[in-house]
């Protein structure tokens, strides 16, 4: 009898509604490392996986958006704690994808720090972009930011920092997200999904699909129950068509902009998916 242990290989699946299903289509695609060597098979999501993910995100929206910002901040901070616990695994995955040891380590640090940074904004963004408006009458007039709804995100290729930098700002304010992960480097995204699944984040708040961007993005852009779309990972020549498809239900569209994710992000990515609600309150009796 051999004492050599068989390796336990991980099957990379999708993350929809808090569960890890395979693609409805049964397809998968080969993910290679930077040198073209085989790394793993990842699920290749279909339009029906997009549909299911949007249903899950819509279902989660009511509960997630009505939590107190403080509670959302706590849960996001918990995600950061879990990320920290999986540091070594993320570093290993980034190295397998071709990053040098120090670069991989630095990217994971930056990603965790970015997540914590956004978690801190949960109960502050309302104070920064909301307002008490002076009006000529016996009223309080308050403008408060409200989450937009279900946000479709086409994630950029930065395997971890880029992904964190688009997902965290969308959900911290109460939106729920359907994320199409980086096409060439989806493995760290699925590992991130495992972190999200084990950190008190309600199922469906983040749904993560791997597969072909060109196949999935148009379904997300045209979906009438998606309220906003972030085109961060879309190539310049595909943006116009997606914007056109998104126009039918007046989606908010965030065009691809900066590409260096290590820059200080600012609050633009949060405010992009907020709507301002203004309410008049009569001044008390």
């Amino acid at each position: 009898m051999s004492t050599e242990r068989l390796s336990v290989r991980k099957t990379y699946k999708l993350f929809i509604g808090g569960g890890f299903p395979r693609s409805e289509s049964g397809r998968s695609y080969v993910v290679n490392d930077a040198k073209g060597r085989f790394l793993a098979n990842a699920s290749q999501a279909s339009r029906k996986d997009v549909r299911d993910a949007v249903v899950a995100a819509r279902k989660a929206f009511g509960g997630w958006s009505s939590r107190t910002p403080y509670n959302r901040g706590q849960i996001l901070y918990r995600v950061a704690e879990m990320l920290e616990g999986r540091r070594a695994q993320f570093v290993e995955e980034l190295r397998a994808a071709g990053a040098a040891k120090t670069a991989a380590s630095a990217e994971v640090d930056a990603a965790i720090d970015r997540w914590v940074w956004y978690a801190g904004w949960a109960d502050k963004v309302g104070a920064v972009v909301g307002n008490g408006n002076p009006v000529a009458g016996p009223f309080f007039n308050l403008s408060t930011p409200e989450p937009t709804g279900v946000v479709g995100i086409v994630a950029p290729d930065g395997p971890l920092l880029g992904l964190v930098s688009v997902v965290a700002p969308a959900i911290v304010t109460g939106n729920t997200a359907v994320v199409v992960a980086s096409e060439p480097a989806p493995l760290a995204a699925i590992t991130l999904a495992e972190v999200l699944a084990t950190s008190d984040l309600p199922g469906g708040v983040v749904n993560l699909l791997t597969g072909r961007r060109a196949e999935l993005a148009p379904w997300l852009a045209s979906h009438m129950d998606v309220n906003a779309i972030d085109l961060a990972g879309v190539s310049a020549d595909a943006v116009a068509d997606l914007e056109k498809a998104a126009a039918d239900n007046l989606k908010r569209v965030l065009r691809p902009g900066l590409s260096d994710w290590s820059d200080e992000p600012g609050i633009d990515r949060m405010t992009a998916f907020l709507e301002t609600k203004t309410v008049w309150h009569p001044v008390g009796v």
């Binding site: 997009v50 549909r51 949007v54 819509r58 379904w219 045209s222 979906h223 009438m224 129950d225 998606v226 498809a245 039918d248 239900n249």
Partner: peptide, 9 residues
């Protein structure tokens, strides 16, 4: 229409 619809409509 060929696109997914939503309950808002």
């Amino acid at each position: 229409t060929g696109v997914y619809s939503g309950p808002d409509h």
